[in-house]
Write a protein that binds this DNA or RNA. Structure first.
Lengths: 147, 147
DNA sequence: CTAAAACCTCAAGTTAACCTGAGGTAAAGT
DNA sequence: ACTTTACCTCAGGTTAACTTGAGGTTTTAG
C-alpha cells in the first residue's frame, strides 16, 4: 500500500502562492487543518491544496473568509470532501457570482444613463436614490446571504 | 438674483444616507469641500451631493477612495465640474466596470468547468494555476490601473 | 558534524474606510 | 430665556485579512 505524501508548510505556501503566515492564519481561523510531526512542525495532506485553491477562488468572487468557513462547515465533517461536495459549493458560489455580475451590470447601466447624462436630479435619479441590492448592503463583499 | 441654497452637514448626511462622521472623513481625505459659517460649522454647496453620489457609485464598483480622489483630481480644479467632466469619469469607470464584469464571468466559467468537475489537477487546473488578471492583483478592488 | 534553511510561537503592526465617545459650542424651537 | 438638537475637535476603537519581527528550535545539505 502506498503512503500518502505529506506536505510541509513552506512547500504548500510555495505551491499555492501564499505566504507561510497566511497558512498559519487560515489554520487559526479554522479554514485548514494540519497535524504536527515529532519536532512540532506542521504537516498537511495534499488535500489542503484544493481547500486553499477554493478559498482563493471564492475570495476572487468577493466571498469573505467567514462566509467561506461557513460554506465549508456545510460539508460533511469527517471525511475528505468529495467531488459532489465541491460541486455544491461551486453551485452556491456560481449563483452568487451571477447575482454579483448582474448587479454590476445594473450599476454600469445606471452610470451610463445617469452620471453620463449629467443629470443626477435629486428626486428621480437612481444614483441619488439608490434602492438596488448592492447599495442596501454597503460597499464590500456582502453577496452571499449565508447566515 | 437668487442665492444658492447652502447645506449643513447633518442635512447632507441624511440626504446621502451617510453618517456625519463620513462627511468629516471625506473632507479630511480631500474628497469633498466645505466652508465654515460664523459659528465654525460646515456649510456645503448643493454640488457636494453629486460628488458624494459619484463616490458611492464608484465604491459600489470596487473603486477605492484613493482612486476616486485621483479621478477627481483630473477634473478641472477651479470650477464646478460640468456634465462633460462627469461624463469623462463615467466613461472611465464604465470601462473598468466592464473589465471587472468580464473577469468575474471568466472566474464563473472556470468555476463551472473546474471546481464543478471536481478535478483540480495540480498541473493543468486554472484554479490551481491562476494567471488571470484578477488573481495577479490579489483580492480586493485593484481594478483601475490609475497610478 | 556543522551551518544554513525552514519552522515554531506570540505580540504587535498594517491598510481601508470608517465609527464612537468625550467634552464643549452654536443654533433652533417654544 | 431656556432647553434641546445639531455641530465642533480630537483621540482612540473597529474589522478583515494578513504581515512583520523577535527569540528560539528542527531539519537538511554538504
Amino acid at each position: 500500500m502506498e503512503q500518502e505524501p505529506t506536505w510541509a508548510v513552506g512547500r504548500v505556501a510555495k505551491r499555492c502562492g501564499v505566504k507561510v503566515s497566511t497558512l498559519h492564519f487560515y489554520e487559526e481561523k479554522g479554514l485548514i487543518r494540519s497535524w504536527r510531526n515529532q519536532g512540532n512542525q506542521r504537516r498537511y495532506k495534499p488535500e489542503v491544496l484544493r481547500r486553499i485553491s477554493v478559498i482563493k477562488a471564492a475570495q476572487k468572487m468577493g466571498v469573505s473568509l467567514d462566509e467561506i468557513k461557513h460554506a465549508f462547515s456545510t460539508l460533511p465533517n469527517n471525511r475528505t470532501p468529495t467531488k459532489e461536495d465541491w460541486q455544491h459549493l461551486s453551485q452556491l458560489w456560481h449563483d452568487a457570482l451571477n447575482r454579483k455580475i448582474h448587479q454590476l451590470e445594473n450599476l454600469r447601466d445606471s452610470l451610463t444613463g445617469c452620471i453620463g447624462c449629467g443629470c443626477l436630479s435629486l428626486n428621480s435619479c437612481p444614483i441619488y436614490n439608490p434602492d438596488d441590492e448592492l447599495s442596501s448592503q454597503g460597499p464590500g463583499p456582502v453577496i452571499l446571504d449565508s447566515k
